[in-house]
Amino acid sequence: MGDLDLVTFLLALLAGAVRVGTPFLFVSLGECLTEKSGRINLGLEGILVAGAMTGYAVAYLSGSAWTGVLAAGGAGLLLGLLHGIVCSLPRVNDIAFGIALMLLGTGLAFFLGKAFIQPQAPMLPSISLGAWSDDGRVRSALNINMLFFIGVALAIFLHWGLRSTRWGLVLRLVGDHSESAQALGYRPLRVRVMATAVGGFLAGVGGSYLSLYYPGSWNEGLSSGQGLMAVALVIFARWQPLNCLWASMVFGAAGAIGPALQSVGISSGYYLYSAAPYILTMAVMLATCRPNRTLTGAPGELSLNR
């Protein structure tokens, strides 16, 4: 690999981290909130796909991409609410309901989305931070979508909020020890429903990034499991919103590594590269898990720990 190739490769990884990582960022922040409240929502995959479809459809019908993003969040909110409410019933397994929701969400999106595969919806704008450079690669890598910045701001906000605000503490208390929360007069179920709904909203927005920016079209093969991966990602990020940001970038870069390596001429084993994020997460879990002890940072009420 020559110097030029190395620069291209690193730039591709960096650009990929942002481009591919942004939907990861939103779903993982959503899942992080949900899990902080003590629930796990495996249905984010369905919500992501439903969000992608709704976002595209509404953007096309209204002519405004941002309206589409909001609608995608709204669709995600509704599905998240459904998960939150049903899982508040006794003896409903949140993992099982999540998988059922995955089926329902993708089913609805595919059914209602047939009419929107062909039309062209307006795309989300991006900001060119690379105008100073006359290198096309740099300009392209620094052509960054607004949603990424919103996601970063959100990660910082949530990081601060979970530590230093009243609602953040309530959420964590509910997730760590719901009986104490109840004793203090809070209603754990209501908090969880809200956290799951907001988580759904964020996953829906993540979906709209896929359909309205990158790769920027609606079709049935759009998602390749980003929603399901969010669950692993949150563990990778040790339930910290700011870590979700870094973890999303790492997962994004890992998703870009196969094409990036091939574009500079290293082309064997691309299936194994694409499994890199999973192997990485597995390694992190192995390195940090001990028997008879829950993961540091893991909410105590999370069904994963019981």
């Binding site: 099982a96 929701l101 089926l103 329902l104 993708t106 089913g107 595919f110 059914f111």
Partner: peptide
């Protein structure tokens, strides 16, 4: 559309739970 059966399955399982 083929997704019709997907919806029916999704509805069935969400309702069942």
């Amino acid at each position: 559309p083929d997704a019709t059966t997907l919806i029916l399955q999704g509805l069935l399982f969400t309702n069942l739970l």
